[in-house]
Simulated assay, not measured.
Amino acid sequence: MEKQTITIYDVAREANVSMATVSRVVNGNTNVKPATRKKVLEVIDRLDYRPNAVARGLASKKTTTVGVIIPDMTNMFFASLARGIDDVAAMYKYNIILANSDSNGEREVQVLNTLLTKQVDGIIFMGNEITPELRDEFRRTKTPIVLAGSIDEENVNPSVNIDYVAAVQEEVKNLIDRGNKKIAFVCGPLSQAINSKYRLKGYKEALKSAGIPYDEKLVFETDNSYKSGMLLQPALSSMGVTAAMVSDDELAAGIMNGMTDAGVKVPSEFEVITSNDTKIAEIVRPKMSSITQPLYDIGAVAMRLLTKLMNNEEVTEKNVLLPYGLMKRDSTK
């Protein structure tokens, strides 16, 4: 069956009113007689008329659509952020196009350009890394872009995050205070500023304050997968490590299970702290201690910030830092 497009003209003809009247009914304009409104709505319902958002966008130069670039839809960290974005978008009557970039620099540029060709009014970027190529694209476009849970070293784009340096520093200090001298720092790629310039910095500062020399052999760079975490056990055990500060929950779960499988008792012989406090931290046994981030709020605040930029409202604070917490569970003493 061929798809038939019902236009505003068809509705006007059937209801025997002008197209302007149909437009007023569709847009909720009160300047229409109740009887006329009822008649028009009945015709809209019968014909299954749906206003053409593309045509409307051409007329208003606005599509009321926002592009959201997410590095990994299966990672609960990003899924929770997206939820906050979506709820605020709905509140301000924006639609969302969600695009997966697979944490791949080239694909991120490609996805960004695809969204821009769709004439989105704004973009929320949740990538792990801003490559020079991506930065160039950000500079070129006039479309407002907000970063959510992503770090821009150059602070060019507005962003919403927590203070990653302070959070990691506090958690590592807690591990040191409990008598751990050999603490591993396990993270995703160090090419990502969030790991190298922020989390690692917090780790180093905690060691320095405690007078423990920094040993780069205790820094383990990997990807954020569960499997990679499982495979780290022999290396961690051979270094005599008694605790690990980990950058991702899935990775941390892998490390913890790898240790348990090798007969190392968590937390009495090995403590684990993770960074994102997604559902994974509570599903595993023992439950994992974690830095807590207001994930939903990061998404929600990023979307609210974007609505201000899209409507040319004044933005006083471009780089928002939301409060973090520390959740003590069973993977630490």
Rank of each mutant, 00 (worst) to 15 (best):
M1A: 14
T5G: 05
I8W: 01
V11F: 02
V11C: 01
V11Q: 06
E14Y: 10
N16D: 03
V17T: 05
S18T: 06
A20V: 10
T21I: 09
S23H: 14
S23P: 04
G28A: 03
N29C: 14
V32A: 02
P34V: 04
A35C: 03
V43L: 05
I44R: 06
D45A: 06
R50V: 11
R50H: 15
R50F: 15
A53C: 12
A55I: 03
L58Y: 00
L58K: 00
T64N: 12
V68E: 05
I69W: 03
D72P: 06
D72E: 14
M73N: 14
M73C: 06
T74P: 01
N75T: 10
M76V: 07
M76G: 11
A89I: 13
M91K: 15
N95A: 12
N95V: 08
I96H: 02
I97Y: 12
L98W: 07
L98Y: 00
G105W: 01
E106Y: 09
V111I: 15
L112C: 10
T114E: 08
T114V: 15
L115T: 15
L116Y: 14
M126N: 07
I130Y: 00
R135C: 12
D136H: 13
F138D: 04
T141D: 04
K142H: 06
P144E: 04
I145M: 09
V146G: 11
A148D: 10
E154H: 14
N157L: 12
P158Y: 11
S159G: 12
V160D: 01
V160R: 08
N161I: 01
I162M: 03
D163C: 08
V165M: 04
A166D: 11
A167H: 06
E170D: 05
V172I: 04
R178G: 00
R178V: 01
G179Y: 05
N180R: 12
N180D: 09
C187F: 08
P189K: 10
A193T: 06
S196W: 11
S196T: 14
R199Q: 11
L207V: 13
L207S: 09
K208N: 07
K208A: 00
S209T: 15
G211H: 10
I212G: 01
P213S: 11
Y214D: 05
K217N: 15
K217H: 11
L218S: 10
F220H: 08
E221Q: 15
T242A: 02
T242W: 00
A244P: 08
D248H: 07
E250N: 07
E250Q: 05
I255D: 03
M256F: 03
G258E: 09
T260M: 00
A262Q: 09
F270M: 02
F270E: 00
S275Q: 03
A281F: 00
R285N: 13
R285S: 11
P286I: 10
I291S: 00
T292P: 02
I298Y: 10
G299E: 00
G299I: 09
A300E: 05
V301I: 15
M303L: 14
R304Q: 13
L306H: 04
M310L: 10
M310A: 09
N311E: 13
E313M: 13
N319W: 12
N319Q: 14
Y324V: 11
Y324S: 03
G325P: 08
L326A: 01
M327W: 02
S331H: 01
T332N: 06
